[in-house]
């Protein structure tokens, strides 16, 4: 078993730094690129902890489709000309950042109190013996969660038809 904690910590640091860039950047396109970096880094972490299928879906749907939608909207609305929408050094912004940081501190302390217990129904070895992460996940998705899967597909098509109608109609 390879020790993955150092590469994972490096990815976590990159993701956190890109998220902070996203918070403080004035340019919408910089925000979009940082979000893309965070999503790619998260996909890497998914791969490291063994969720291969979720990592692939993250790459295709999030880093592919949703980011294209965002960048296309930025291009369509020509966001360059709007300029900045906030001041970094305003008291409101500093106060909010400080309280957010304290929230992270308290939450991290709470997380460190948790000690993971090994209830390994699907350990790495069991997963490999059953045919790998994708096969096991697909089996669970189409048997145990079959109705939820169909409901989500209906929700997706309703939302997409609604989005097209909303964008076409003049209000």
């Amino acid at each position: 078993m390879v020790n993955i904690i150092y590469p994972m910590a490096a990815l976590c640091l990159i993701c956190a730094a890109l998220a902070v860039v996203m918070l403080f950047s004035k340019d919408a396109l910089t925000c979009a690129m940082s979000l893309l970096g965070v999503l790619l880094g998260t996909a890497g972490i998914y791969g490291m902890i063994g969720a291969h299928f979720v990592a692939t879906v993250q790459l295709v749907v999030y880093a592919g489709a949703i980011m294209v939608l965002f960048i296309f909207s930025i291009m369509l609305l020509n966001l360059k000309k709007f300029g900045k929408d906030f001041h970094v050094l305003s008291p409101k912004f500093l106060l909010a950042s400080l309280s957010a940081l304290s929230l992270v501190g308290i939450g991290s302390w709470a997380i460190m109190q948790w000690s993971p217990t090994e209830r390994a129904q699907w350990s790495n070895e069991a997963m490999l013996a059953a045919g790998g992460n994708t096969k096991v996940l697909a089996h669970s998705l189409f048997t145990q969660h079959g109705i939820a899967f169909e409901a989500v597909s209906i929700a997706l098509i309703v939302a997409l038809i609604g989005a097209v109608t909303l964008a076409k109609r003049k209000f």
């Binding site: 910590a9 976590c12 993701c15 956190a16 902070v20 992270v104 939450g107």
Partner: peptide, 12 residues
């Protein structure tokens, strides 16, 4: 580690 990152990303 992923939990702490998730917390940080959520707060940001």
């Amino acid at each position: 580690l992923p939990q702490i990152l998730a917390l940080f990303l959520f707060v940001v």
